[in-house]
Every structure is written in structure tokens, then in C-alpha cells.
């Protein structure tokens, strides 16, 4: 059986290479957490996998396969049917990732009709990310949402078409602990119910550890360590991983 996602890529902005032949595989139904310092290239990796990096002025070389299908070399219109359908994406900053002039309803409908016919029903979807599904909410403009609401809406977009792989770039950064826990639970459920593979980008190792099967550590544009959470926490090998783990708050037991 094919891996859900397999890649080996280098990415650069202009002449500066920020990802140096980063490789990874995510098995179907696997949740991989990607941790690293700010600026290490996590978001770059997510955009590179979606082949959207050129819109940010970057360029990518290497290979990306989703369920055994090679993405590099696909035309833009073929990529369009991959994005949002095969690969779901939750962007990092909810403040800027929503078009403030559009209504929630419009955004939902447009995201829906990108890959599906007919009218979508969004009640259950919104409920799963703990957003109200009533008319008042649907008629709000995206500019009127709180950052947390925005982030949950973006999560809803990311999982709407039940993608094979979900790339979630710090999807819980703007959420309070309770909502954060609920969202993590949602991801875990999705993973169990639909077998959605996930690349879960975060610098909060602790929260990630609870739902992920494996943790990859990205440092200076390279994956320096990869292993199950237990091993990473108890016996980190790479000095960088060690410093990362040492910096974590310890439980007092």
C-alpha cells in the first residue's frame, strides 16, 4: 500500500535555500508532528507540499507523492483538484488568511463547490469545530470574526472534503486551552474515522505529542530527528532535540 504522503524536497527564496533536501513519509492514518524553531521552514514546507510556494516568491525542487501520485510536474489545473481535496490545508495566521469582505456563508459555499456539486450543508462541520451554524453566524463577514473563530473556520475548510492528507500549520495557536483540547480531539477523531493522515506543524511539542504517532524535528532546513513521541521525550539523540526537550515544562511527578 502506498504512503499517504512521501516527499523529498529542497526549497529556496531567491538564492537562499531554506529547506535542504527535506524528506519524509506519512503512512495512511498516521499523524506526524513537525516541530522546530520559528523560522526553521515549517510553513515553507507546507506550502511547498501544496506547490503554492511560487506565490510567495519561492521555488521548490524534488518530488512529492500523494497516495502514490507524483505531484511535481502536474499542471496548475490538475493541482487545483489536488488542493483542498487530496491535501487539506489549515494556514498559520487566521488574522490574514480570511478575506474580510466575504460572508462566512460565501466562504463555506465557495470552498464546498471547489470540489463538490450541489449545495453543501455545513451544520455538522461547523459543530465539529465548535462554531454555531445559525444564520446570524453564516451572515457575518469574515472580518467580524474573532481570531479563534477564524482559526476554527479555517480548520473547517481544511477538513471539509475529507482529504487524504491534512497539512495543519499551527492550527491551535489562537485557541484557549479548552477549545484547543476539543480541536485536538477532533483531529484525533477524524484520523480514526476517516483515516486522514496528518502533518501537524507546531512548536508546542507537548500538546502535539498527545495525538501524534511520530514527531519530526526540523532544524536549519533539515529533519534532524524522527521517532515516536515517547522516544523523542525520553531519549532525544540530536543535541537540538535535546535542547528542545529540556526547554519543555516538566510535570512534577
Amino acid at each position: 500500500m502506498n504512503n499517504a504522503l512521501e516527499f523529498r524536497i529542497s526549497a529556496s527564496y531567491g538564492k537562499t535555500e531554506v529547506l535542504h533536501s527535506v524528506a519524509g513519509t506519512i503512512a495512511p492514518g498516521e499523524i506526524v508532528a513537525l516541530a522546530g524553531l520559528s523560522g526553521s521552514g515549517k510553513s515553507t514546507l507546507a506550502l511547498a507540499l501544496l506547490r503554492l510556494l511560487h506565490y510567495r516568491g519561492g521555488s521548490v525542487t524534488g518530488s512529492i507523492t500523494v497516495e502514490g501520485r507524483e505531484l511535481t510536474g502536474l499542471s496548475e489545473s490538475a493541482m487545483r483538484s489536488v488542493r483542498g481535496k487530496l491535501i487539506g490545508y489549515v494556514p498559520q495566521s487566521p488574522g490574514t488568511a480570511l478575506n474580510e469582505r466575504l460572508k462566512v456563508r460565501t466562504l463555506l459555499e465557495e470552498t464546498w463547490s471547489a470540489h463538490a456539486e450541489g449545495a453543501g450543508s455545513f451544520g455538522a462541520l461547523l459543530e465539529s469545530v465548535q462554531l454555531p451554524g445559525d444564520q446570524v453566524f453564516l451572515n457575518k463577514r469574515a472580518g467580524e470574526l474573532s481570531t479563534g473563530q477564524g482559526q476554527r473556520l479555517l480548520i473547517a475548510f481544511g477538513i471539509m472534503h475529507k482529504p487524504a492528507v491534512l497539512l495543519a500549520d499551527e492550527p491551535t495557536s489562537a485557541l484557549d486551552v479548552i477549545t484547543q483540547a476539543a480541536v485536538l480531539k477532533l483531529f484525533a477523531e477524524l484520523n480514526q474515522k476517516n483515516g486522514t493522515a496528518m502533518l501537524f506543524i507546531s512548536h508546542d511539542l507537548l500538546s502535539v505529542a498527545s495525538i501524534s504517532h511520530r514527531v519530526d524535528i526540523l532544524h536549519e532546513g533539515k529533519i534532524v530527528e524522527s521517532g515516536p513521541p515517547g522516544k523523542i521525550f525520553s531519549a532525544p539523540e540530536h543535541p537540538f532535540t535535546r535542547s528542545l526537550v529540556d526547554a519543555m515544562p516538566r510535570r512534577m511527578d
Partner: peptide, 28 residues
């Protein structure tokens, strides 16, 4: 608009470019 996060998000959701232009860009 080209630099905006929402345009990138719209692309990541797989919306066709024409639709993006009409629904997302035109109101601006």
C-alpha cells in the same frame, strides 16, 4: 492582494482562479 494570506488560502482550497478573481478579488 497578491501578497494577501486569504488569496493563498483560497488557492490552497482548490478554487478555480476565475472564481477566486470573481468572489475574492473583485469585491476589493
Amino acid at each position: 492582494i497578491r501578497q494577501s494570506g486569504w488569496l493563498l488560502q483560497a488557492r490552497a482550497s482548490g478554487m478555480p482562479s476565475r472564481r477566486i478573481a470573481l468572489i475574492h478579488v473583485w469585491p476589493h
